[in-house]
Design a protein around this nucleic acid. Structure first.
Lengths: 190, 190
DNA sequence: GTCTATACTTCGATAGAC
DNA sequence: GTCTATCGAAGTATAGAC
């Protein structure tokens, strides 16, 4: 039951935003009255916290596994594909984690920020390693390469259409190619 | 006075989110009591609408001017720089427009979506033109190149530090290079 | 475990004095 | 133009019956 509440809350929060979502509406989506929700959940904010922490545990685990199983030369491409597949596979959770952080009150907000930073450090670690192997440009501070990559990846969930032309894995490959090879025509006179 | 209210509201909404911001707090930041605000403003939502529409007018105008003054071969790079400079120069407005759209009620929400789509179409237009001139890869649907570029650009305002190492124009050049040339080491064996 | 009823708080917005 | 006072609505959460 708890899992059902969490999944429904994630869907609701993603669609309407945390602050605009009411416990009454959430209960209604599950087929309960508002008060009955509090038999399972301590507070509305607990739901946001659980959604956020689960989202980060999931993507960090998925990406770590992908890297571990990957040949060094494929690490970055596999990271990108794993990130996209994980984020799109947990779209509601992930979108809520990304956009509703400021609605968490202080002890737990910092906890989510730390988990987010840890994931970011994992991504940066791969980028730094690729630079050391001369597979990524070294003329750009890895900090900016990491930001650029996370921009590219994170915000995809806000426009991706689940029934569209590209499966998550294809989209991941596409984004990996844009990030690594670039959008410029190879050999173009620029 | 109105401009001061709008700028303060944008700053407040960006920091705390629209729904979590109260008119009492906004009034306090200006040095007024809550009721006095309503001498200048009809409703809280009016502020959000004005912030959003101004943000889009600004960036669309800035980018259009940059393209018009640009040699064809530099159009995309100039677009990227203009986008970054405009967005960072109106950081509060732009961030609010990007992240608080769902708090607008229906007649005006669609209006903002339309303005956003129009700007997106402008960006896509340049990308399509660059493909036609063989300066951008044609093996990727321009729709995805546009999404990727806007991901890269739009979400930069959420981590950019105004006093950091890079000025907006430098950051724009950097992001242009990542998007066009890619992050991969030139000639690397991948 | 689910309900009705309600306590408690806070918000956006208004009324009306000055 | 700014204030104090307040209205009416809506929200989270709780009490207590069943």
């Amino acid at each position: 039951m708890e899992w059902r509440i969490l999944a429904t809350a994630a869907e609701l929060f993603r669609t309407k935003g945390y602050a605009q979502s009411t416990t009454r509406e959430l209960a209604g989506m599950i087929g309960l009255k508002k008060a009955s929700l509090y038999h399972y959940v301590e507070s509305k904010e607990d739901l946001l916290y659980e959604i956020s922490i689960q989202s980060l545990r999931q993507i960090d685990g998925d990406v770590a596994a992908a890297i571990a199983a990957s040949a060094p030369a494929d690490a970055l491409r596999d990271l990108i594909k794993a990130h996209i597949c994980s984020a799109l596979g947990n779209r509601d959770h992930h979108a809520v984690m990304l956009s509703e952080l400021r609605s968490l009150s202080e002890p737990r907000r910092q906890q989510i920020v730390k988990a987010r930073d840890a994931y970011e450090a994992r991504v940066r670690g791969v980028i730094v390693a690729e630079q050391a192997e001369n597979r990524l440009r070294s003329d750009i501070n890895p900090k900016y390469l990491t930001f650029a990559l996370l921009n590219l990846l994170n915000w995809t969930i806000f426009w991706y259409q689940p029934g569209g032309a590209l499966e998550p894995e294809q989209l991941g490959s596409l984004l990996a190619s844009i990030f690594i090879e670039g959008a410029g025509a190879a050999g173009a006179v620029t």
